[in-house]
Each structure stands twice: as structure tokens, then as C-alpha cells.
């Protein structure tokens, strides 16, 4: 009796896991199904590389891809040094109480809602960018990527700190015993050992930056054009979905947002695979210790 019951419960648990996993694949299938008229006959690549001109029957998402890459990569350019500096401050330079408080502040920052960043960005950052750089409305690639950098930094800092802390303490004893400073220890021992963790952190942050909707939607201006400079307005794949989804359900214009969805899905898949590779390398570093 109990044995049957046990088996039934185990089946139930398996079913839950199976359904959850199936949803992941189902999402992809659904988007391909709905975007099908656009993808058939090898037109998917053409959509990725052509321009958005709905009235001329061209539904390419090239400008949005460029916009996404510009905004998220620029955000990484700001966020990486900032996060690296903060992580060094937390785990190498400062000690004791200060280090703990800083870490806590960063942890709390991860809990701040995205829409709040966007809201403050509109009323604080946009006028600033407008006045300092004399950049039109101020809604541009630069504003969005600055705010996005603030959004992704806390996660990156915590991951950096974590990967610094994972390097076994015994590795550094030789350096310290020879009279090396903590910074030398960090540069020559911790950093070379922690690189897989750093790659994981950067990849995750990039995924967050690309996948974020609200910041770019609120701060980047949403013009459908591939931006030429950081002061140009741009539209990301995510905001394109948010802006076009209300169009007529049967139109090709509407179908094009599924091309955005599929691109984002594939991009996420690549990042997740990269993270797994790097994490495996990190596992090996840990095994040596």
C-alpha cells in the first residue's frame, strides 16, 4: 500500500518537473508557430538583416538588433569596471564592518524594482544628459545604457565577490609569506584563478541587459533606426515587442515581434550554454584546491 503511494507521489513530482521543463520548450514552439509566415522559406535571416518599413512591406528587425547590442554592450562597458572596482573594494581592500555593510548595500540594490530605476531615470538622468551633452531630448542610447549599468552592476558585483572568495585561501599564503601585499595577492593569485567566475558574471549581466525591457523602453527614445552615435535614439528588441504587440493580430507587422522573441530566445540559449561551459571550468579550478 505505502509502496504504491510512494511510487504515485514520485510520479507526481516527476510530472511537475516535466511540465515545468516542457513549458520552456513550449514557449519556443509557440513563438515559432505564430511567427511562421515570416520564417518560412529561409526568410528568417532576411528578417534579421533588413530594415523596418511596415508600409513598404519590409519587416526586418535589423535596427532593433543593432539598438539592443549598442545599448547592452555600452551598459557593460560602464558596468564592468564599476563592478570590478566595487568587488575589489568589498573583498580585497576593505575589511570587517565596512566590507560587510557594502556587501549588504549591494545585496539590497538587487531588490530595487526595474520600473523604479526607469522612473527615476526619466526625471533625473534624462534632463542631466540633455543638459550636459546637449543631446536633443536626452532620450538616447547613452541614458539607457547608464541606467542599465546601474541595474546590472549589483548582480555582477556579488558574483565577482563570490568568485574571488571561492579561490582557496591556501593559494595565497606563499605570496603573503614572501611579503607580498594584498593587492599583489589579488592580482597574481586570485584574479587568474577566478576568471571562469568572472566570465559567468559578465555573461549573466549581459543576458540581463539584453533581456531588460523597461529601462530601454522608458529611456532610449524608441526610434526605429540603427543608432549612429550614443546620442541617437534607439529601440531594443524587447521594447519593440512591447510597442508593437497591440497591432492587428493577423498583420505581418504583428508577426515580426515573434521574430524578436525567437531572436531573444536563441540569444538566451547561447548565453546559458556559455555560462555552463565557464561554470565547468570554474569547477575544475575548485578541484585543484
Amino acid at each position: 500500500m505505502t509502496a504504491t503511494c510512494e511510487r504515485a507521489v514520485e510520479r507526481l513530482f516527476f510530472a511537475a518537473a516535466f511540465v515545468s521543463a516542457f513549458v520552456t520548450l513550449f514557449i519556443f514552439g509557440f513563438m515559432v508557430y505564430y511567427g511562421l509566415p515570416l520564417f518560412s522559406g529561409g526568410r528568417f535571416l532576411a528578417i534579421l538583416t533588413s530594415h523596418w518599413a511596415p508600409h513598404q512591406g519590409s519587416f526586418g528587425i535589423y535596427p532593433m538588433i543593432v539598438g539592443t547590442l549598442a545599448i547592452s554592450l555600452l551598459a557593460m562597458v560602464f558596468a564592468f569596471p564599476l563592478s570590478m572596482g566595487c568587488a575589489i573594494l568589498i573583498s580585497v581592500v576593505s575589511r570587517g564592518r565596512l566590507s560587510r555593510i557594502l556587501r549588504k548595500v549591494v545585496e539590497v540594490m538587487t531588490g530595487i524594482p526595474t520600473v523604479v530605476y526607469g522612473f527615476v531615470g526619466i526625471f533625473l538622468l534624462i534632463p542631466l544628459v540633455r543638459n550636459v551633452f546637449d543631446a536633443g531630448s536626452g532620450m538616447c542610447v547613452l541614458s539607457a545604457s547608464l541606467m542599465l549599468a546601474v541595474l546590472v552592476s549589483p548582480t555582477m558585483i556579488l558574483f565577482f565577490c563570490d568568485s574571488f572568495d571561492r579561490v582557496p585561501r591556501s593559494y595565497g599564503h606563499a605570496v603573503l609569506a614572501l611579503g607580498g601585499t594584498r593587492i599583489q595577492h589579488f592580482l597574481h593569485v586570485t584574479l587568474p584563478c577566478a576568471w571562469p567566475g568572472i566570465i559567468v558574471a559578465v555573461t549573466m549581466a549581459l543576458g540581463r541587459a539584453v533581456g531588460d525591457t523597461l529601462i530601454a523602453l522608458m529611456l532610449a527614445g524608441n526610434a526605429v533606426q540603427a543608432p549612429d552615435s550614443v546620442f541617437d535614439s534607439a529601440r531594443t528588441l524587447t521594447s519593440h515587442i512591447a510597442l508593437v504587440f497591440a497591432a492587428d493580430n493577423e498583420s505581418l507587422e504583428f508577426k515580426a515581434i515573434f521574430a524578436c522573441g525567437v531572436s531573444l530566445y536563441l540569444f538566451t540559449t547561447i548565453l546559458v550554454l556559455m555560462i555552463r561551459l565557464a561554470a565547468r571550468a570554474r569547477g575544475k579550478v575548485g578541484q585543484v584546491g
Binding site: T24, I27, M31, G211, T213, A242, L264, Y265, T268
Partner: peptide, 10 residues
């Protein structure tokens, strides 16, 4: 890892 807008689109 999926962006929330993709879940929304789904």
C-alpha cells in the same frame, strides 16, 4: 534566463 518580455509574449 528568458527575458520577461518573452514570457509575456508567450
Amino acid at each position: 534566463g528568458l527575458p520577461s518580455i518573452v514570457i509575456g509574449l508567450f
